[in-house]
């Protein structure tokens, strides 16, 4: 199973459990055998439900510790950190920790049958109440305040599915640090100071190029400098092909599977 699948499955399970517990269904569960056939097929490999006692804690910790700007808006506009580029691996390893903890727990998890009872025993209604509308237990079908609910769930989704501003910056730095040394822009050309090109890059999860870099847009090209404009685009393409495979954090693959590079040599002239 891919890491992404595992993360989604884990997130989904957390959620299902959360719902089940908070909506009072947990009361019905002890009488019921948690037989595997209830579990949707995509969760099958996780099978043994993670130790419920620890469920809420790692999930909450996995949420971004530094709230930062609103998570879902304008990711690319997040201001870049002033500090020099951190080594690619270090900060991400830190971020990975909670997930590793989960994975560890999964491996150590007791047989599935014991899980529900443990979950019930360790469940902290007070904490959950803060997250979920109190009216919900009485309305077993549909939560009313979906926005608050969504927010709580968003926070509960493990790292990797979403991305913090710091991770964006780190990822950008990692890409930049690897592409720039491979790029031979045609400096000294008469029009170099005004020319830029944007390419769309598609990568496989191993960092290799999944498709030839795709031309998106170009500035500074005119009827008089077509040869130069063409050569300029080719240097950018070549830089990507030459640098591949890129070494980027695997847990953020969803974010670098496809991205755009804006080649702008103005600072070089």
């Amino acid at each position: 199973m891919t890491e992404r699948g595992a993360l989604l499955a884990a997130g989904g399970l957390h959620l299902a459990l959360l719902l089940a517990l908070s909506l009072g269904i947990s009361r019905a569960l002890p009488n019921r055998d948690m037989s595997p056939d209830v579990t949707p097929i995509e969760y099958l490999e996780i099978g043994p439900v993670p130790t419920a006692t620890k469920l809420p804690q790692p999930s909450m910790e996995a949420a971004p510790r530094d709230p930062g700007p609103p998570p879902s808006s304008d990711l690319p506009d997040v201001p870049m950190p002033q500090a020099p580029a951190p080594p690619v691996v270090a900060p991400l390893a830190d971020d990975k920790a909670p997930q590793d903890a989960i994975a560890e727990d999964v491996r150590k998890a007791p047989p599935p049958r014991s899980a529900p009872s443990q979950a019930r025993n360790s469940f902290d209604p007070g904490a959950m109440a803060a997250l979920i509308d109190k009216a919900i237990p009485d309305a077993p079908v549909r939560p009313r305040d979906t926005s608050a609910f969504a927010k709580s769930i968003e926070q509960a989704i493990p790292k990797g599915a979403r991305i913090s501003p710091r991770q964006v910056a780190t990822l950008e730095q990692a890409i930049r640090a690897q592409i720039a040394p491979c790029w031979n822009p045609p400096i000294g050309g008469a029009d170099v100071s005004e020319m830029t090109v944007v390419l769309k890059i598609r990568l496989n999860s191993d960092g290799t190029v999944a498709a030839p870099p795709e031309f998106v847009s170009q500035t500074g090209a005119s009827a008089g400098n077509q040869a130069y404009a063409r050569a300029f685009v080719e240097t950018a393409r070549r830089a990507v092909l030459r640098c591949a495979p890129l070494d980027l954090p695997a847990d953020l693959y969803t974010h670098w599977r496809e991205f755009e590079l804006n080649f702008d040599p103005r600072q070089m002239t």
Binding site: D74, I175, R176, P181, W256, E260, D264, P265
Partner: peptide, 11 residues
Amino acid sequence: AQLRVDITRGT
């Protein structure tokens, strides 16, 4: 929002 990285320097 798709990641967009500026490459402002080359070699």
